[in-house]
Structures are given as structure tokens and as C-alpha cells.
């Protein structure tokens, strides 16, 4: 070992520097490819509408204004859709978190007879389903089409979440529960008073996964809902994509009715409508995601352990 070579960590191979450069450049490029579209939507939604419609807003906002957001909120059905999205996210997340916590805990309890049979009964559905159409027919027969609860009920029991919670509960010290049992606590008391408060990290993971899934869900509306009052934001965005032209006209007319002369910069174009609604849909994700990233990572790692 020479004097300059102070330890194994500092040993450099030939080609290290070019490799690092290419590596950084490659990741920078891919990160831009992933991040720029979001930035593009945002700057276009706050730029002068006549310029953004030409596709000329690329690097920073041109003719900054926020009136798109005011006008978009007046579009038919949008506030309703927001409420549907929020309601299904809150109720859907709440019920699935509680159900996962409870079932994950129960499947660690030896007092539950045939627990491994029931556990498999649930886990099997992760790998096998009857198929799109048979499920559709069942939901239709149950009268759940055009019903808000079609967003909630089928999503309550999630096998993957139950695996996560069960693995977690198994890692908790047994003594917690034993002490409570000696004091004569019943199973429900033990769950709510002892286990539930100790499960917060894993429940945060389950909550964030299911909140994102509920917020993003589109297919259940496509299959089971034709009533516009029950459209969540994702679906409304999809319909806007197809009817942006007529909506832009409607928004312009509405402005005309108010007696104000719509300037080219603020009157709605198909582009401005699409971009603004897209930003409204994506913003919660962009804000929430970095805050909860570690929970996502923890979740997928725990899931991987289970394989």
C-alpha cells in the first residue's frame, strides 16, 4: 500500500471518474423526464391561455394568472366530483385501515379456530379472481351499480394489507398482550387498547397505499357507474379530455353572460381546461407523496420479505 492510498475505500479504478459523470448525467436525465411533465402541466395551468394553447409555454409561466382555477371550479360537475373523490378516499381508507388492523391481528390469535384456513381463504383472492365480467354481473345483481358503496365495500378487505399487518403484529412482544390478558381484558379490548396504539407505523403505510389507490381509482367508475353525480375526479378528468372543446365554449359563454369581456389570455381553451383539471387531480399526490415516501418504502420492503 502506498502512502497516498490511505485505505481500501479510496482505491479508485481507472474509469471511475467518467463512470461517475455518465452515471450522474443519466440519472439527471431520467429524473427530468419523470419530473418535467408535472412542471409542464403546472406552468401551463397558470400561463396566458392563448399562449399555452399554442404550446409555447415550455420553461416558465408566461403571463402568470390564476383565473383558470376560479373558472374551472365553476365547470359542471367538478365540485361534485371533488366531493366524491374526497369521500371515497376518506371512507375507503378509514374502513380498510380498520379492517386490515383487525384482521391482521385476529390471524395471529390462536384462539381463532381454523385461523390458517380463513387466512388462506382471504390470501387466495390475491392470486385468483373470477374475472372482470363475472364480478360485474355479481355487482350488478347486488344492486351496487350506480351506488357510492361500490367504491368502498369491495375494497375493505385487502389481502396484501392483512399480510403486512399480520407480519407486524407477530414482531410485537408477546408480553404486551399477555399482561392485558392476566388483567382479564377481552379480545376486543386488547385490540383497541393494546395492539392498535402499537401499530401506527404499519397502519400509516396501509393508509397511504389505500388513500392513493382510492384517489387514483378510475376503473370501478368505468365499469359500475354511469350516474355523473358519482363520478370521481379521475373519471371527470377523463371525460373532460374528450369534451374539452365544448367545455371551453361553455366556460367562455358563462363569462360572456356575466358581462365581462373575456380577454384572450384568460378565456378558456381546451388546453387550459385539461391542464388545470390535471393539476387539481395531481396536486394532492405531489404534496402528500414526498412527506410519506418512507412509509411507501417501508411497506414495499415488508411486502418483499413476505415475497
Amino acid at each position: 500500500m502506498t502512502a497516498t492510498d490511505t485505505g481500501p475505500r479510496l482505491r479508485h479504478a481507472r474509469g471511475d471518474i467518467p463512470f461517475a459523470l455518465i452515471n450522474y448525467a443519466g440519472f439527471l436525465l431520467f429524473a427530468l423526464v419523470c419530473g418535467y411533465p408535472f412542471y409542464y402541466l403546472i406552468i401551463n395551468s397558470v400561463s396566458a391561455n392563448d399562449i399555452s394553447a399554442l404550446g409555447d409555454v415550455r420553461l416558465w409561466p408566461v403571463g402568470l394568472h390564476l383565473s383558470n382555477y376560479e373558472q374551472i371550479l365553476g365547470l359542471p360537475g367538478l365540485t361534485g366530483s371533488m366531493l366524491v373523490s374526497i369521500a371515497r378516499t376518506v371512507i375507503g381508507t378509514g374502513t380498510t385501515v380498520l379492517a386490515s388492523a383487525f384482521l391482521g391481528f385476529m390471524f395471529t390469535q390462536e384462539r381463532l379456530k381454523n385461523r390458517s384456513l380463513w387466512y388462506r381463504f382471504i390470501i387466495f383472492t390475491m392470486y385468483f379472481n373470477a374475472g372482470l365480467i363475472p364480478v360485474y354481473i355479481t355487482i350488478h345483481t347486488l344492486g351496487l351499480t350506480n351506488n357510492f358503496w361500490v367504491y368502498i365495500l369491495p375494497a375493505i378487505v385487502q389481502p396484501f394489507n392483512i399480510i403486512l399487518v399480520k407480519t407486524y403484529v407477530e414482531s410485537l412482544p408477546q408480553s404486551l398482550q399477555e399482561a392485558a390478558e392476566i388483567d382479564g381484558a377481552g379480545i376486543v379490548t386488547i385490540f383497541f387498547r393494546i395492539i392498535l396504539p402499537n401499530m401506527t407505523p404499519i397502519l400509516a403505510t396501509v393508509a397511504i397505499f389505500s388513500a392513493v389507490a382510492q384517489w387514483n381509482s378510475f376503473q370501478d367508475t368505468l365499469l359500475y357507474v354511469t350516474d355523473q353525480k358519482l363520478y370521481p375526479l379521475q373519471y371527470t378528468l377523463y371525460t373532460y379530455l374528450n369534451q374539452a372543446n365544448s367545455l371551453a365554449q361553455a366556460a367562455q359563454n358563462a363569462q360572456g353572460d356575466l358581462g365581462s369581456i373575456a380577454s384572450a389570455a384568460t378565456s378558456q381553451t381546451p388546453t387550459s381546461i385539461r391542464m388545470t383539471v390535471a393539476v387539481i387531480v395531481v396536486l394532492p399526490i405531489i404534496f402528500v407523496y414526498p412527506l410519506f415516501q418512507r412509509y411507501f418504502v417501508k411497506g414495499i420492503m415488508l411486502g418483499a420479505v413476505k415475497g
Partner: peptide, 20 residues
């Protein structure tokens, strides 16, 4: 953070991005 973000948006939004 940037490269995992697209995983958390719906396919409708991906299409919206593709379209714009």
C-alpha cells in the same frame, strides 16, 4: 423522489400527460 412519483398517478393522468 422524482422517478417514483409517476407510479403514484393514475393512468388517466399519464394519458393526459402523453396528450399534452
Amino acid at each position: 423522489t422524482l422517478t417514483t412519483l409517476p407510479n403514484f398517478i393514475s393512468w388517466v393522468l399519464v394519458y393526459m400527460i402523453a396528450f399534452s
